[in-house]
Design a protein around this nucleic acid. Structure first.
Length: 116
DNA sequence: CGTATGACGAGCC
DNA sequence: AGGCTCGCCATAC
């Protein structure tokens, strides 16, 4: 497991984000054990297979957005782009403004907070 | 083995 | 307030 690729760990963390909620790259990185690895999270999601499925498990990459509460622009969009991600999120109940912004205060997943 | 890249983030101008 | 630069980390080449 020590040899486990960072990507796999990241994907696993992303899988924890519940439907109807979103998480930031930095948040995922932190939960994966990479305090300053937000960019690495983006790299990992970029490396996801087309069907977004790993080991038979669907990775909800669309629930990961940047710290500004906006959907990251991969410049062109190989998978359909920002519009597609926004559509999926809305389908899950997340309000996405026309310019792709999301209210973090309302939809950000707080799963990293240890419930007392 | 060194350089370049990128779905980020925080700080500075 | 808005935009630009620098820093971080794990891959790709």
């Amino acid at each position: 497991m020590a040899d486990e690729r960072i990507f796999l760990k990241i994907w696993r963390t992303v899988t924890r984000v519940p439907r109807g909620r979103v998480a930031t790259y930095g948040q995922i990185a932190l939960m994966t054990g990479l305090p300053r690895g937000a960019r690495t999270v983006g790299w990992a999601l970029r490396a996801l297979p087309g069907d977004g499925r790993v080991g038979g498990v669907k990775v909800p990459w669309h629930r990961v957005i940047n710290a500004r509460g906006a959907i990251s622009d991969r410049g062109g969009a190989g998978d359909g782009g920002i519009g597609r991600q926004a559509a999926v999120l809305r389908r899950e109940g997340v309000a996405v403004s026309p310019d792709g912004r999301i209210r973090l205060g309302r939809y950000l997943w707080r799963g990293d907070r240890r419930p007392s």
